Simulated assay, not measured.
Amino acid sequence: MVGRRGFPSCIQCGTRSNACRCKVVGPTLGFLAFAVTAVVQWPVGAVVYLFKRMKGRRIMGHPARVVYPRVSHAIPI
């Protein structure tokens, strides 16, 4: 329909974790978890980066490296 906005979602097709070979819930919740942790960890990582560069980079990369994949892969649909 024109003028209506849907719920933004992430879709991953070509996966073998379910019969439909598409995932919607896992990647969407993974992205939401990524966004929430990024809001907290990126400013903290930026402050730590001023003193310890590698540690700051690891903190800022944590949402993309750990949080999103774990949440996305935990939900098979």
Rank of each mutant, 00 (worst) to 15 (best):
G61V: 01
G61W: 00
P63S: 07
R21S: 14
A46H: 03
F7R: 12
P43A: 06
A19D: 12
V44H: 04
I59H: 01
P8L: 09
S9I: 15
A64W: 10
V36N: 01
H62K: 07
V44L: 15
R53S: 12
L29P: 01
G6E: 14
W42S: 01
G61Y: 02
C10P: 00
P69D: 11
P69A: 13
R21C: 12
P76L: 12
G26P: 09
K55Y: 00
G30M: 09
V36G: 04
I75R: 00
I77D: 10
R65Y: 14
A46R: 04
S17Q: 13
A33H: 06
M60N: 06
A38R: 07
L29H: 04
P76V: 11
K23R: 15
G14S: 11
V36Y: 10
R5I: 14
S17W: 05
Q41T: 06
L32V: 13
G56F: 02
G56D: 01
F7S: 08
M54H: 04
R58W: 01
V71C: 08
G30Q: 08
R58N: 05
V40R: 02
G30W: 07
Y49D: 03
V44F: 11
L29N: 06
V48N: 03
V47E: 02
P8D: 12
W42L: 04
A64I: 05
V48K: 01
S9E: 14
S72L: 11
A19V: 03
P63E: 01
V24K: 14
L29Q: 07
M54A: 07
R58Y: 01
G30A: 15
T28Q: 05
V66L: 13
F34E: 11
Y68H: 11
V67Q: 04
P76E: 10
G3R: 09
